[in-house]
Nucleic acid binder design. Structure first.
Lengths: 246, 246
DNA sequence: TCCGTCTTAATAATTTCTTAATAATTAGGT
DNA sequence: ACCTAATTATTAAGAAATTATTAAGACGGA
């Protein structure tokens, strides 16, 4: 097999997100743990419902893999409790596959299902899928580096330079400039920019973009003798353009 | 215009929009269906390309979720066909496809894509996101740029040029000129123009258009050596026409 | 804890929209 | 041609909407 995992996941690795695995079967847990660790996640383990709830409150994991069949507090109950306390994504492990069961899980806020018996590979892929809120493809597709005026944006190095000077951009700033650079002159709405740079599930406020754009502009302007600028299109959004040299 | 919530996703529920899901894998379809239904959409299902095209023509869905790997007619082909017939937004489901495949899909007019395996919750969120920005992109659909005489209106750049000179138009002015340019020589009433350029719920009075038209004319006239003009049709409205060069 | 980043909120600055008043033009009847 | 009523053009000012800027708090990671 192509031994390159479906989505390279390497970006996620570095983030070291925490995944809480809840299952009373030690063997299952071990197997899952192995695969998740290989993907670079930190794995927390709970063998029953109470432990799960406790750990979830303590460690605030980024995702919970939850078996429905648990000793003590039932899996569905755990799910409901978790939902009351946070928005942490939940992947349910279940042997039962009736429509009713699925619906129940959905109503309780599960993000995805994996039915037992499952392949740990599949589970790992689903974990990546749930945690992958911003498709890295958005930034990684297309050429490795794009140029516009004296601006160069290198996506492999994750680095932008203007007239040879390295711009010290934060992650969001880099994504914004990357998006704009890919299609200079095209206008992007704030909603589009937010979605592509922050994530489709961002539930904040459009105007956050303004601040990021402002900061990118500030950094662009700190480099003298170029003409790349982010233009405001009143009532619509922003676009990258060449203006008067500064 | 305050207290109407700006649409935090799930408000769309009440609209009951129709989503066509095209995939040959019954399990995938079922899962997607569950999540979309929970969000209040009416879900139509097709298991192959022909069925999909048929249903799309029949039911005119508001959005299509389209798997690329289909038996019979290929997903890309379905995408292309759909695009020829309508502007319905398309979200593509791609398994591990090559870069080339994805770009192809986007070139064919897909609005977004999700790679398998995906979290159904993510898909639901994307559906909301795409449907949310339809109104703002309504002008973007159709041709990216239209020409009339020496006038060019580019919707992607949100920029109009006359004889190569950029016209500095306000949002409403741009929309007005865009509407007129799409169908030169056709007369539009003030009510039509107001509705299309300002909004369905404008509660002001018709004559406001006159001022905007006046301003567009002024900006057109500031460019010498062309012949594009907005003509007044007494008692009826305005239209775009070619007149004597100025 | 310290540091960098993100988000939000408040306020300032800017641009655009609408209205209203007046002038100019048109159409139609005489 | 002339007169009149209706329609449109022009202008400027105040209102409204959008964007810029700044700073403070939240949050997570070294």
């Amino acid at each position: 097999m192509a031994d390159i995992p479906i989505d390279s996941g390497k970006d996620i690795m570095s983030t070291g997100k925490r995944v809480l695995v809840v299952d009373d079967d030690a063997k299952t847990v071990e197997l899952v743990q192995l695969y998740l660790k290989r993907d670079g996640y930190k794995v927390l383990i709970a063998y029953d419902g109470n432990e799960a709830l406790h750990l979830a409150r303590e460690a605030k994991p980024d995702l919970v893999v939850l078996d429905l069949m648990l000793p003590g507090v039932d899996g569905l109950e755990v799910c409901r409790q978790l939902r009351e306390e946070s928005d942490v994504p939940i992947i349910m492990l279940t042997a039962r596959t009736t429509e009713a069961d699925r619906l129940k899980g959905l109503d309780l806020g599960a993000d995805d299902y994996v039915t037992k018996p499952f392949s740990p590979r599949e589970l790992a892929a689903r974990v990546r899928a749930v945690l992958r809120r911003i498709p890295e493809e958005v930034l990684m597709r297309g050429p490795e580096e794009v140029y516009y005026g004296k601006l160069a944006v290198n996506f492999r190095k994750h680095e932008a330079t203007l007239a040879g000077t390295v711009l010290n951009l934060t992650p969001i700033e880099f994504k914004l400039l990357g998006i704009l650079s890919r299609e200079p002159d095209r206008v992007f709405s704030r909603a589009q920019l937010i979605e592509m740079a922050v994530g489709y599930d961002f539930d904040g406020f459009d105007r956050t973009v303004d601040v990021h754009i402002h900061n990118v502009r500030r950094k662009l302007d700190s480099v003298p003798g170029h003409s790349v600028q982010i233009k405001t299109v009143y009532g619509t959004g922003y676009k990258l353009a060449l203006g008067v040299s500064n």
